[in-house]
């Protein structure tokens, strides 16, 4: 394999990993507050279709992203209300959100299936893109990829170094103790869930505005679910999510790599790769029951009712 091909593969792995990175960053914040939102796939699809529709009608891809972010946050608010206010089961509510989003996105997008648009164009960053090898892999992407780089580092800083991060972790680890020292647990969780929705929206917009600039039913193909596995893979650490997203991105384009190498394996079998990889990774990561318990937010998935004591 020559270096040119390797550069192209790594470039594509980053591009493919970017939607996973966005959505998993949102989900990790949500989970750190103690809320498990299985509605990622639904929020992402809604982001994709609304982003596409907005960009298609206005001709402005930037407006598409903003619309997708808004849509994602609205979707997440439905979830937050049911789970946080009504104490509904998080697993069932998340599933409902995914089923709802899958249906609603197909419903409102049925008129524009197959239409294409001019999405975001790549921007080569001056100087940085001239770095040999790395420049071509990292700095010849579109604006959303750069946004995801910045987001990752900002979130790493916020979660690990600021009071906001501390509050978030307090709520996720022990909501009753957090409540006792005056933190508004439900408000923090609302914000965390909404952040997840906004990120899922951007992630969807990336799919329909950049990755394949069009709208197709179910175009996210399970990425919302893979993102949930990615959070486990990253042991709820922001920095590791970036690494994981690109590894999964690489697994998703393996079929191109193998075809490039001249292997003849059915594309339908190779299409299973990201899903198989997800299962394998989860088995390896979770096998140590004790370790996982130690790393995951302690109140994850458990409702918090301020009227009750711990």
């Amino acid at each position: 394999m020559d270096s040119d091909l390797i550069i192209q593969i790594l470039f594509a792995a980053i591009k493919t990993g970017t939607p996973l990175l966005f959505i998993a960053l949102g989900e990790v914040i949500c989970e750190k507050s103690g809320v498990l939102n299985l509605g990622q796939e639904g929020m992402m699809l809604m982001g994709a279709v609304v982003g596409f529709l907005a960009a298609y009608t206005t001709g402005n891809a930037g407006l598409g992203v903003i619309a997708a972010m808004l849509m994602g946050s609205i979707m997440s608010l439905i979830f937050a209300f049911l789970v946080l206010h009504l104490g509904a089961n998080q697993v069932a509510t998340g599933l409902a959100l995914t089923i709802f989003g899958t249906g609603l996105s197909a419903f409102i997008g049925s008129g524009v299936v197959g239409q294409t648009l001019q999405g975001f164009q790549p921007i080569a960053i001056p100087l940085l893109s001239d770095i040999p090898y790395l420049g071509r892999i990292l700095f010849q992407h579109d604006i959303l990829v750069y946004t995801s780089f910045v987001m990752t580092f900002v979130l790493m800083f916020v979660v690990n170094k600021t009071r906001i991060g501390l509050t978030l972790k307090a709520v996720g680890e022990n909501p009753h103790a957090a409540n006792a020292i005056g933190i508004k647990v439900l408000r923090v969780r609302y914000l965390a869930v909404m952040f997840g929705g906004v990120m899922a929206g951007i992630s969807g917009a990336y799919m329909s505005l950049v990755y394949t600039p069009m709208w197709v039913e179910n175009m996210t193909a399970g990425r919302g679910w893979i993102a949930l596995a990615l959070v486990v893979f990253a042991s709820w650490r922001v920095g590791r999510i970036m690494l994981g997203a690109y590894l999964f991105g690489l697994a998703s384009i393996m079929h191109l790599v193998l075809q490039g190498l001249g292997w003849s394996i059915s594309p339908n079998l190779l299409a299973m790769l990201p899903y198989v990889a997800t299962v394998v990774v989860m088995v390896i990561i979770s096998a140590d029951k004790f370790k996982e318990k130690l790393l995951s937010p302690r109140s994850l998935g458990k409702p918090f009712d301020p009227r009750q004591m711990a």
């Binding site: 193909a221 399970g222 486990v232 339908n268 299973m272 899903y275 299962v279 979770s286």
Partner: peptide
């Protein structure tokens, strides 16, 4: 036996079954 998350593995197996069938 490996403590893996049932929700996620069963979802992944949905996709794997679909591609197996298409293949």
């Amino acid at each position: 036996h490996f403590n893996s998350n049932l929700i996620l593995t069963t979802i992944m197996f949905n996709y794997i079954a679909l591609y197996l069938l298409i293949w």
